[in-house]
Design a protein around this nucleic acid. Structure first.
Lengths: 212, 212, 212, 212
DNA sequence: CATGAATGAGGTTTCATTCAT
DNA sequence: TATGAATGAAACCTCATTCAT
């Protein structure tokens, strides 16, 4: 269906790869839509396929089973967030620590907000996906990026405290989750963002002082 | 609304007789066991009944449907945590703010740890239970208790910042969730506890200063 | 359904065991009916259940999957044939060898004929059931029985030739299979029976002579 | 009827070009490989095509449906066996009866052994292919060849017994099937071959004597 | 009250077959 | 002619829930 449209208005001969890409994209997007509109336990492969405008069979050509479909969507989201944070880390090197923290926190919050719908949708299925495991892997990845960044902080005497970084990450996640699940307004989100910066800055400072 | 929910999903009959009480207890415990050993999507009413040593029919005499069973277990857990925190709040009145915060945080962490297995089990089903709604209700309840406590703090000039309390609660929840889902060791939990105290104290101080 | 009938016309209170037994019997019989009327590849669990007058769910309470259902029917049939042959072996001890062979062959043929429909039906599914394995096991069981019987033959000097027994069994099976699959008439079957006796007797005699 | 069947299930086009011949051969061979490695119920047209190194579409240009593909492979095998036996019959004319029988039996056994893998593979699908019908047709063809041969036997007074020939054929088939499905060793097969000769010779002699 | 056999809607997944490229 | 993505009917199996005993 989507392919027809593309064919009709695009170049005559669309490469197979592209057609497949379009289909896969439609399926992923449909997964999120269904998750949001019907909830996790009423997400069926048939429904997802219908929403994507393809048949079930097509869905199963790209994903061997329901689980792999959900996992792919989940992983993709985590990757995007990770990349955003890593980019922020790279950008913030050699700046004062409080600036570093502000940038990282804001990058994280903004990345989540970018696709707030996906975030909310995924909270519903994460438990069935070995979510915790992927969350943990992502956490480690982010911690490393933050650690490397902090090593370049001019105003940080000691080597950064890994445990403190983990605390910060899980605290941010928790706060974002609350706000997202509550369906907070943009205004509230701006406030959450500002307060999270404050929370992380004050805690990191305190943790560093205590470590000394 | 909340009342309707309670009516619809609450336990079907009040266990007055001892035998009934025992049965209900066994069913709830079995629910948690099955959740932990089989996972959320393989939790069946038949399996729960078998684990509890009763027949499915009996289970359905106490809970009108599967949802109400899970909801009851969930609600019970939230109540216990709430009560623990409220008790800590009552105890900590008129003490210095940092002491207040320490006590509340420790009460929360300890209550969660008390039945770490239940906490972990419930993370798996919360999304299917209108979890966020109950979490929000519990959050409001806790915030009120904390607010009242803070009003008695001798070293707090301004009225306490509601938003900051919410931030603290969600940050604590997030950190605990990470640790619980990661299956952290007791040693790690002690460290998490200490750091959460530090985090909340430093943030509340900073938030208060900023508010002034 | 079947239970209702039994209840209506039978004793008031039918023991649970019996009800289950009736159901299981109906399911097995339905399996054979469907196999005969629709063929092996159009045998579906739903169809079997419908034919048995129960729901699919009921079928799955007694057999964990389609395979186990077919296997149970298969095994039951093989058991009945085996028992018939073993009984004949026990009966024929101490008689002349040709008499022994006649009795065994006739027992085998008669047992197969008894439920010719089942035999034909099972030929269709045996390959999907690890049929050969069960056939082999049954073959060994029969061979042992025949061997023991032959040891008591007054006119057999040497110990019986195991290999020859296997040959006889597989030859009988093959001949019966041909006749059954061809839908032979009773008259033809009588002739097949007589000729199989002749075939086995002459071969066993020849094999014994050669062995000497 | 038989003609209709042949029209409906026969190969769709005659391979005149070499490439086509090669392709058809590859597909047939692949069918057998898949049958052996995956079993009858996991034989899919896609898998066969992949194994043959072509696309599904190509497969469907040579065979209108899955059934016709299997039937073609089956028929081809039966033809080869028939031809081998017929050749043996032609060769053995005017020789003594026991010699005739020896040659025919050995020809049959050797033809089956030649492609033991195919034989085993086909046992798995024969029931779904109207196997018995084709087997019966082949049986009649073989019986005729054997009958004609026996008419030239110098030591056979009466006209040959058709029924006895059928018995012999089905007994041989049964014995070979047992051995093949059991995966017998070459040594065992040599023994089976020798014993089958003995079995057929002694039975035919006995049948002739009785007929007289 | 307790039991557990029975129900059947509905979910996941497969695969023969077609057809646009 | 070859390809392989797409189709969708249909199979297997689960499990929340009921109700006769």
């Amino acid at each position: 269906m989507a392919a027809d449209v593309a064919t009709a208005f695009g170049p005559r001969k669309m490469p197979i790869q592209t057609r497949a890409t379009v289909t896969v994209g439609a399926i992923c997007e449909a997964t999120i839509q269904v998750l949001l509109s019907h909830g996790a336990d009423r997400l069926t492969t048939t429904r997802v396929a219908a929403r994507a405008g393809v048949s079930v069979g097509t869905l199963y050509q790209y994903y061997p089973n329901k689980h792999s479909l959900l996992f792919a969507v989940f992983e993709d989201h985590m990757n995007k967030v990770s990349q955003a944070v890593e980019a922020a880390c790279a950008d913030a090197c050699y700046r004062p620590m409080s600036e570093m923290i502000r940038r990282v926190v804001e990058a994280f919050v903004d990345a989540k907000m970018q696709r707030a719908d996906i975030s909310v949708a995924l909270y519903k299925v994460a438990p069935d996906l070995g979510g915790p495991a992927l969350v943990r892997r992502t956490g480690q990845r982010l911690r490393k990026a933050i650690e490397l960044m902090l090593l370049t902080a001019p105003d940080l005497k000691l080597s950064p405290d890994r445990f403190a970084i983990d605390m910060v990450l899980s605290a941010i996640s928790g706060a974002m989750r609350s706000a997202l699940e509550a369906g907070a307004s943009p205004a509230v989100f701006r406030k959450v963002r500002a307060h999270l910066v404050l929370l992380c800055q004050s805690y990191m400072a305190a943790a560093a002082a205590k470590g000394a």
